[in-house]
Simulated scan of single mutants.
Amino acid sequence: MRPSTSETRAHPRHVGIVMDGNRRWARAAGHLDPRVGHRVGAEHLERFLGWCAGLGIEHVTAYVLSADNIRKRPEAEVANLLDLLATTIPRVLTRPDQPWRVHVSGDRSLLDERARRALAEAERATADRASHLTLAIAYDGRQDIVEGIRRSVALLDGRAPTVEEITAALPGGPVKEIDLVIRTSGEQRLSGFFPWQSVGAEIYSSERFWPAFSEADLAAALAFYADRRR
């Protein structure tokens, strides 16, 4: 049997990143305010995307903020996260030198108006770019599947959808299937990270906290992927 495309590529076509450990990085660095870790982590996404672009990886999905975190974390911390969604992340991604088209997956009703407006503008401003970045914001993996099924059924006028049709109805760029999921901070669980799209993905756990995750750490993850798919 002929191997699949993802098995024969030097690098994964689509990389998922669970950006974990911002608060722990801040504490380890001597910062009493966890907002420092979130800000540095948001800014670090630009570096990670630059490394991916340099390697020819044109599809990235990043876990930014879960719906559960919005509901359960302290109000002040959530307010800071929403401020980053309204300022730092859109500013970084809409720069003219960025190749990434922004897609957002999640329940935007959980966000404040300022964050919703900024993310919508980032999607609009980057709509003609060739590479694809999906941001999981106010995201719930099970709800993502439910919404994909609902959208596909509506498009098919009630006919039962196929797996391919449900996949196509999910948010994100044209390549939905994730080949490699990287989670930082040493955690082993996926925490609901795109369960439909990552069903065939390799999972790589890095001990680094997200703000300290380096280009060498990405190379190690890619080497792991290549070894697993060899």
Rank of each mutant, 00 (worst) to 15 (best):
E187A: 06
E164K: 10
S198G: 13
V146T: 13
L133D: 09
S185Y: 02
G172I: 11
F193L: 15
L135H: 07
I137V: 15
S152H: 01
R189P: 02
Y139R: 12
L190S: 07
A154D: 14
Y139P: 05
T167W: 03
V181S: 12
S152A: 13
I137P: 03
I178T: 04
V163T: 14
I178K: 03
F193R: 11
A169W: 08
S131L: 10
R142M: 11
A169C: 13
L170R: 09
E177K: 14
G148T: 05
L180F: 10
T162K: 12
I182H: 04
E187G: 01
V181T: 05
T162Q: 13
S198Y: 06
I166T: 03
G148M: 11
V175M: 07
Q143K: 14
V153Q: 00
I149G: 00
V175F: 13
V163K: 13
R150P: 05
S131E: 09
G172V: 13
G173S: 02
D144I: 01
H132L: 08
I178C: 08
V181W: 09
L135R: 09
E177I: 14
G148W: 11
S198R: 04
R142C: 03
E187Y: 01
L180A: 00
G148E: 08
P195R: 03
W196M: 09
I178P: 01
R183K: 05
R129L: 00
E177V: 15
I149S: 04
L190C: 10
E164A: 15
L180I: 08
E187M: 07
P161A: 11
L133G: 01
R129M: 03
R142H: 14
K176F: 12
S185N: 11
A169N: 09
T167D: 08
T167N: 04
I178L: 08
P195H: 04
T134E: 02
R159P: 00
G192H: 00
V163Y: 02
Y139H: 12
E164M: 07
K176L: 11
A136Q: 14
R151G: 01
I149Y: 12
G141N: 05
S185Q: 02
I178H: 07
R129Q: 12
F194H: 13
I166G: 05
R151L: 10
Q143T: 00
D140L: 04
V163C: 06
V181Y: 07
P161N: 09
E147M: 15
L133V: 07
S191I: 08
S131V: 05
V175S: 10
V146S: 04
A136H: 08
G186N: 09
E147I: 03
A136L: 15
T134V: 09
L133E: 03
Q143G: 12
P161D: 03
A168Q: 14
G148I: 06
A138C: 06
A169P: 10
D144E: 15
S198P: 08
I149E: 01
K176M: 10
L170V: 03
W196G: 03
I145F: 00
T167K: 09
G186Y: 07
I166W: 01
V175K: 05
